[in-house]
Amino acid sequence: MRAGIAAVLGVFALNGIVFGSWAPRVPALAAQIGAAEGTLGLSLLGASTGMIAAALLSGSLCARYGARIMVLITAIAGCAVLPVLGMTQSPLQLGLVLVVLGVAVGGLDVAMNVAAVTAIRQSGRAMMPVFHAGFSIGGLLGALGAATAVAFELSPLRHLSIVAVAGAVITVSFSRWIPVEQLRPEAENIGPKRSLVKRPVLWLLGFIALCSSVAEGASVDWSAFFGVHQRGIGEAAAALVYAGFSISMAVARLLGERIERRWGAQRMLIGGATLGAAGLFIAVLVPVPAFTYIGFALAGMGLAYGFPVALELAGAVGRREDGGGGERELGFVTTIAYSGFLLGPPLVGGIASVTNLAVALGITGVIALAIAPLALLAARARRREQQTSQQAVQALHTR
């Protein structure tokens, strides 16, 4: 099982490396295609659009063909598309390529989380936050690689081609060890299929992941900018605000298994939401640069658990009696969550344009805090669903 856990960690890290490699090259890509800020923003929406389009379908494909095959296909596809970004010559081309890349990355995201749920079931360990720490670490490695490429004056095409080749090698090396559930042939016929949209627990878990993604995306996109323009921190020093957020999130996720084993998923979500919101409130309410670093570091720690734990619980509520299942449920929750990455940046930017960035990030803190009551409602909805299922089974046995 250690090989399976290592393989899933490797896939999470690969996804982070892919994201961390192309995102820092956006300025170079913008210069390459001659795009202004507004036009570039429309092009960048392509990635989020592709991810949302792929998420729901990927859950069903994983249920039919297995996570291992889907990880292999989507990871290779993402690596193949990555260098094409360096060949684009217009905003339209960049947007279309990002749609395709978003489809591949979105499919990989769902498949690797399905594989993570399988690894959790087979090992009996609450490792979902740890797996997501692999993504965070991969993102940092990708960003460091991008910085190195810029320092050596590598074009986006050459840099992303190197990343693509390395990513393909990693994919092929790890894919054979990705855990696969051994289901009975008749597993798909066990029990009636419940409509996903009629299950309140899935909507609540989706909103938890949505709030987490909005708050996380806002912190990633605006933390350094906030440090420069609201607290007068220099650009180089402000980069450390984002670094502190990312590192504290990665560390918190690495400790996630121990914390979840001790406190449970519900307390983990409530405590994380409270800490994350408090961090954002500290950053925007205390006009002292030192508290900007402290606030965003606390926000990173608190927001570390919302998204991965929501996905873990989605897999759990979809588990069948034979031990399998959860792929469709996980894809449904992921689809809702991805809309946060799409809506978050323009939401914060729009509020900031009407008021200021401090107010916008403060509202983001309120959104993060909303995870706490949503976690309580989700637990209640899950218990109600379990009681309904038990009553239905009892009714069948009494006939």
Rank of each mutant, 00 (worst) to 15 (best):
A6E: 09
A6C: 06
G10A: 10
G10P: 11
V11P: 00
S21P: 12
A28W: 00
Q32W: 01
A35I: 08
A35C: 09
G38I: 10
L44Q: 03
G46P: 01
I52H: 06
L56Y: 07
R64Q: 11
G66L: 09
G66A: 08
T74S: 10
I76Y: 04
G78D: 07
G86K: 15
G86T: 14
S90F: 07
L94C: 02
V99C: 07
A116K: 10
Q122S: 15
A126C: 12
A126Q: 12
F131K: 06
I137Y: 08
G138N: 00
L140N: 06
L140Y: 06
L141C: 07
T148M: 10
S155C: 04
H159E: 00
S161M: 00
A166C: 08
I170E: 06
T171I: 11
W177F: 15
Q182I: 14
Q182M: 13
R184Y: 08
E188F: 06
K193C: 07
K193Q: 08
K193M: 08
V201N: 12
L210N: 03
S223F: 00
V228I: 09
Q230Y: 04
A236Y: 06
A239Y: 01
S246E: 07
S246I: 01
R253F: 01
R253T: 01
I259E: 06
I259S: 08
R262C: 05
G271Y: 02
A273D: 12
L275H: 03
G276R: 05
A283Y: 04
A283M: 07
L285R: 00
I294D: 12
G295R: 15
F296L: 06
L298Y: 04
L298Q: 02
G300K: 02
V309P: 05
R319A: 13
R320S: 13
E329D: 03
V333I: 02
A337I: 03
L342Q: 07
P346V: 00
P346A: 02
V348H: 01
G350R: 01
V359S: 15
G362A: 06
L369T: 11
I371M: 09
A372R: 12
A378S: 12
R383S: 11
R384N: 01
Q390N: 05
Q390Y: 03
L396V: 14
